[in-house]
Simulated scan of single mutants.
Amino acid sequence: MIVDAIAVLLGSALLLRFWMQAIRVRPPSSVAQFTFQLSDWLVRPLRRIVPGVGGYDWASLIGAFLIVLAATSILFFAGWPWPAVALMAFQRFLEWILYGFMALLVIEAIFSWVNPHAPLAPFVRALNEPLLRPIRRVVPLVGNLDLSLLVALILLQIAQLLLGMAFAGR
């Protein structure tokens, strides 16, 4: 459980680092410092092997998967074969991505209710914008109420359910 908690923290920092770079969002200095200090030990050596291609920080994404694989490799010592461990790691990696997007949406909802002018609110809004923009084109405002956050959460939960069903037969 402790290993999994540490893995989630490191993996989340790496996925956040990848997402910030992919959508070109400049984080507040406190978030940048936390994210980079937590993940530089893995990203810098990986960049020597895996360069950024297409404007994406692939080293951060691969680093997140390696963290998931390391945390999941405990199953190998419990008698699971390597292919099953790798498949389970891939499933958990995709789940972490979905949970990360859900967490960002929930944080944005909390900011909108509690303090929409909080210092981190514009940053979180910018992180969610690529997810919400296509939904906002389809889902109209209902009485000045933006339901795109709710629709995005439901769609992410459906994706999570489909992911679970896809990997259920392993």
Rank of each mutant, 00 (worst) to 15 (best):
D4Y: 12
V114L: 14
V43Y: 07
V85K: 07
L75N: 11
A121M: 00
N144S: 13
G79K: 02
P130K: 01
G63R: 03
Q91W: 11
F93Y: 12
R26E: 09
W113G: 04
V68N: 10
P116S: 00
R92P: 00
R136Y: 11
N115M: 07
A13P: 05
V3M: 08
A118V: 01
L141I: 02
I107H: 10
F34W: 11
V151R: 04
F36N: 11
V8W: 13
L66Y: 08
F65V: 03
P81D: 13
S112V: 00
Q37D: 15
A64C: 07
F93L: 04
V8Q: 13
W82I: 13
L42S: 05
L104D: 10
L69Y: 07
D57I: 02
V114I: 15
I67C: 05
G54V: 02
S29I: 08
A7N: 09
I49A: 15
L75S: 03
L162W: 11
V138M: 14
H117K: 11
N115V: 03
I158C: 11
R47I: 01
F34E: 00
P119Y: 12
A152P: 13
W41F: 15
A89R: 08
E129L: 07
R47S: 08
W113D: 00
I74T: 10
P83Q: 06
L131D: 08
L161I: 06
M102H: 09
W82H: 02
W113V: 08
P130W: 02
L105N: 02
M88P: 00
L156T: 03
L145P: 00
L127G: 08
F36Q: 09
L162K: 05
F123D: 10
W19Q: 11
L75C: 00
I135D: 01
R47H: 01
L161E: 04
L162N: 03
F18W: 15
A84G: 10
L98P: 04
F18E: 08
W96R: 12
L141P: 04
I67F: 03
V114E: 06
P51K: 02
A89C: 05
V8P: 00
A70D: 01
G63I: 04
R170D: 12
T72P: 09
G164L: 10
S39Y: 10
L14G: 08
A109S: 02
I6E: 02
N115D: 15
L156W: 09
I107R: 06
I135N: 03
F111R: 01
I110K: 10
H117Q: 13
Q21P: 00
I62D: 06
